[in-house]
Design a protein around this nucleic acid. Structure first.
Length: 397
DNA sequence: CCTCCACCGGAACGTGAGGAGT
DNA sequence: ACTCCTCACGTTCCGGTGGAGG
C-alpha cells in the first residue's frame, strides 16, 4: 500500500503538468549568478582593492557591511573566484563564521581553514597555538597569497572577542606569503566595539552595501527568473509582489528570491498552471512558519520549557509577561517532568536568546518601585503557535 | 530628592563530553 | 594510564539601574 502510494506520487510527479522551473538551483542561496545587478560599483571597488595581489603585493584588508541580502557575500565570492582564475598564486578562503561547530570559535576557524588548505587536523584536542602553527605552516607551504573572507565576522567577535583578528591582521609571522582579510558584517556599528587597532587595520578599506529598493529587486528577480523559470510560468505581478514584500524588509534580495522560489514550489505542488500572486502570499506565510518551526524544533529541552512557559502564559491571556512570571511557571513545568530546574540567571539568558532568534520579543523596562525586568511578547500568529505547541509539549514527556 | 524593587548582565569558575599525545 | 586540550552548558557572585512611591 505504502509502496503503491509512493510509486504513484513519483509517477504523478513525472507525468504531471510541465514544471514551472527550468533551473531551480538558480534561486537557491548558494547559486552564484554571472551578473549582479546594481552591485557593479561594489564589485569594481573590491576588484580595484584586490588587484595588486595579482602582482604579489599585499593588499589592504577590507571591511564590507550592509544589511542581510544586500549582496555582500555574492560580491566577495564573485570577485574572489575571478581572482583565483586569473592567478594561481592567490588563494581565496571563504568561511562563514556563524556556522556552528565549524567556525564559531578560534580553534575551529583555524582548523577549518587548515583543512581547506589540505591539512588533516582533529576536530578537538590540540592546543590553540598549535593550530595556529599548523595554519601558518599550511599557508607558507602553499606558497599562495591568501585572501581570507570572513563572513558574518560580527558573530565571531561577539562570541569570542577580537583577539583573533588582532593576531590575524597584525601579528602574523608569515615569511614568504601574505594574508589579507575581507570582513563581512550585517551589523554596521560592529566596528565600534572593536579594539581601535584592530578596527584600523581591518577597515583599511570599507565598502558599503546599501539596501536594494523595490525596482532594483525587480531587476534581480527578472534576471534570475529568466534562468530559473520556464517562460511565462509567472503570472503578471508576481515579481513585483515579491520585490515589494522584500523591499519592506530592508530590501533583502535573499528574501525576494526565497519568496519567488517557494511560490514556484507551491504552484507546482498544487499543479497550478502558472505561479500566481496568491502563491506569493502563501509563500510568505510558509517562510515565516518554516523558520519558526525549524528554530523551535532545534532548541534544547530547557529552552523549549522556557518557551512553552511563555506561550502558555501568553495564551492564557496574561498581559505584560515578565521574567519572574515565566520563571515560576517554568519551575512548575520542571517539577511536573522531574527535570532539573535551572537558575534564574540562566533562564534569563535563555529568554534573551529566544528574543534574539526572533521567536519572542522582549524589552527591558523599569516599573519603578516594582523593579526592572523584561517585558515579554509573543508576536506569533495563532496558527504558528498552534504548530509550535505540540513540538514543545513533546519535550514534556 | 531619595529609596529600593526585581531583575539585568558581566565575569569567573565548574563539569563533563570529546579527543590528542606520550 | 595519565595529563593536557577545547567547548557547550550551567552556576555563583555581584555590581548596576529606571523610575513609582514615599
Amino acid at each position: 500500500m505504502a509502496q503503491q502510494t509512493l510509486h504513484e506520487i513519483f509517477k504523478h510527479y513525472l507525468e504531471s503538468t510541465p514544471t514551472h522551473f527550468k533551473n531551480r538551483d538558480a534561486l537557491s542561496l548558494t547559486y552564484l549568478p554571472e551578473i549582479a545587478p546594481h552591485r557593479e560599483e561594489q564589485i569594481n571597488q573590491l576588484a580595484r582593492i584586490l588587484a595588486p595581489s595579482l602582482k604579489g603585493s599585499k593588499v589592504s584588508n577590507v571591511f564590507m557591511y550592509g544589511k542581510s541580502g544586500t549582496g555582500k557575500t555574492l560580491v566577495a565570492q564573485h570577485v574572489a573566484a575571478e581572482l583565483e582564475r586569473m592567478s594561481p598564486t592567490i588563494k581565496p578562503l571563504y568561511i562563514n563564521c556563524k556556522m556552528k561547530k565549524v567556525a564559531n570559535t578560534e580553534y575551529r576557524l583555524l582548523a577549518e581553514l587548515s583543512r581547506v588548505l589540505g591539512r588533516r587536523v582533529p576536530a578537538t584536542g590540540l592546543p590553540t597555538d598549535e593550530i595556529y602553527n599548523i595554519f601558518l605552516d599550511a599557508v607558507e607551504k602553499n606558497k599562495q597569497n591568501v585572501v581570507l573572507i570572513l563572513d558574518e565576522i560580527d558573530e565571531l567577535v561577539n562570541k569570542i572577542g577580537d583577539s583573533i583578528l588582532y593576531t590575524l591582521t597584525r601579528n602574523l609571522e608569515l615569511k614568504t606569503t601574505k594574508l589579507s582579510i575581507i570582513g563581512i558584517s550585517n551589523d554596521i556599528s560592529f566596528t565600534d566595539r572593536l579594539d581601535p587597532r584592530v578596527k584600523s587595520s581591518l577597515s583599511q578599506e570599507e565598502i558599503l552595501f546599501p539596501p536594494y529598493n523595490a525596482v532594483q529587486l525587480q531587476d534581480i528577480l527578472v534576471e534570475r527568473s529568466k534562468i530559473s523559470f520556464a517562460p511565462s510560468a509567472l503570472a503578471d505581478g508576481v515579481i513585483q509582489k515579491c520585490a515589494a514584500l522584500a523591499a519592506q524588509e530592508h530590501g533583502d534580495a535573499r528574501k525576494a528570491l526565497d519568496l519567488l522560489r517557494i511560490a514556484g514550489e507551491l504552484a507546482e505542488r498544487e499543479n497550478a498552471p502558472i505561479v500566481s500572486i496568491d502563491h506569493v502570499d502563501k509563500a510568505e506565510e510558509k517562510i515565516d512558519l518554516d523558520r519558526v518551526v525549524e528554530i523551535v524544533r532545534s532548541q534544547p529541552r530547557q529552552s523549549k520549557f522556557v518557551l512553552l512557559s511563555i506561550i502558555r502564559l501568553a495564551d492564557r491571556g496574561d498581559k505584560n509577561l515578565q521574567t519572574g512570571d515565566v520563571f515560576s511557571y517554568y519551575e512548575q513545568v520542571c517539577k511536573n517532568t522531574r527535570t532539573k530546574i535551572l537558575t534564574p540567571r540562566r533562564v534569563s539568558d535563555l529568554i534573551a536568546e529566544l528574543d534574539s532568534m526572533g521567536i519572542i520579543s522582549t524589552k527591558v523596562i523599569s516599573k519603578g518601585r516594582y523593579g526592572r525586568t523584561r517585558e515579554i511578547q509573543v508576536p506569533l500568529s495563532t496558527s504558528v503557535r498552534a504548530k509550535i505547541r505540540p513540538i514543545l509539549e513533546e519535550a514534556e514527556s
